[in-house]
């Protein structure tokens, strides 16, 4: 029991002692912590952006509407007929017919195109049937349906309204991978930075290490202060990264709100959640310890007392 208490006391002393060492060199410590913070904040920030993109794209996933445009010269009755046939299809949930006249009327009231449309002698627009498939429609069957429609003598073209959603998803998948690659590289950089900082620390305290070893200090005793230094670098680097993230999100909040309003407000942007905060800390801590350990493993054994 006593041994456990002693062990804990010694760890607590080392932990606070390492903090004291950082405080005694405020400039060097702050710079190291800033670099670690930036390296951790970058991939976290990118990840938040990509996550938002995915959440946004996810909202469109179920929409697979397509529009069927009639050939020029097709009458409204023919278009009605086409719509009736589509309505009867098992794959179709509902349809909506936009006649050439309605489309033109819409354009006419449009601020930008209104004047152009008034100048037109004939209505150049086709009739359009907007088709919404049933939610669980088989994509292959839908494909067949649209291909068959494209062959119809009445139909000019069939346009999928949702192609861009798939492209966006593919792009987001690519972005997600890129974030992971960047994150891996930057965490590697953090390990190297902490390792190098602690290597210098070990060199500066060479005399102390030598004397301690002469007086019977175990490897663990000599190692502990440096591991705790790495621990603190990780913690403070994580804190600094979260501050940077919070600041960046705050700076972006205005434009994001405007963007959300343009999408009709049906989307709540994701910020820093508990999982992100925990992950930044965990990665910072692990990288700090890993860096410290790499330096300690390579350089402490090399210091042997010389008398």
């Amino acid at each position: 029991m006593n041994a456990i208490v002693n062990y804990c006391i010694r760890h607590a002393q080392n932990c606070i002692g390492a903090l004291g060492n950082l405080v005694r060199q405020p400039m060097a410590s702050t710079l190291t912590i800033a670099v670690i913070g930036i390296a951790l904040a970058m991939p976290s920030g990118l990840n938040i952006i990509v996550s938002n993109g995915r959440a946004l794209a996810g909202g469109f996933e179920d929409i697979r509407d397509f529009s069927v445009y009639t050939k020029p010269g097709a009458t409204l009755a023919q278009a009605e007929n086409l719509r009736g046939r589509l309505d009867d299809d098992d794959l179709v949930a509902n349809t909506r017919l936009i006649s050439a006249e309605q489309a033109l009327e819409e354009l006419r009231t449009d601020n930008e195109f209104g004047d152009v449309v008034i100048a037109l002698a004939d209505n150049p627009l086709p009739h359009t049937v907007v088709v919404r498939p049933i939610p669980k429609a088989d994509p292959e069957k839908l494909q067949i349906l649209t291909e068959r429609l494209a062959q119809d003598p009445l139909v000019d073209i069939v346009r999928l309204d949702t192609e861009w959603v798939r492209r966006l998803n593919a792009f987001l998948e690519l972005a997600r991978r890129a974030v992971w690659i960047v994150a891996t590289m930057l965490v590697g950089a953090v390990i190297i930075i902490v390792g190098n900082t602690i290597r210098l620390d070990i060199q500066n305290r060479r005399a102390e290490i030598e004397v301690s070893k002469l007086l019977g200090a175990s490897d663990g005793f000599v190692r502990r202060p440096f591991l705790y230094t790495g621990f603190w670098y990780g913690i403070f680097g994580g804190c600094f990264a979260l501050l940077l993230l919070a600041g960046s999100l705050w700076a972006l909040s205005g434009p994001v709100e405007r963007l959300v309003r343009l999408y009709g407000g049906g989307f709540t942007p994701l910020g820093m959640d508990g999982a992100t905060i925990a992950l930044v800390f965990a990665v910072g801590l692990a990288a700090g310890l890993a860096g410290a350990w790499s330096a300690v493993a390579r350089h402490l054994a090399a210091i042997q007392p010389k008398v």
Binding site: K213, L214, G216
Partner: peptide, 16 residues
């Protein structure tokens, strides 16, 4: 280390 802890050492250059 445990062995060295049983031995006191004094050095010409003190090693303080």
């Amino acid at each position: 280390p445990a062995h060295r802890r049983q031995i006191g050492m004094v050095f010409q250059d003190h090693k303080l």
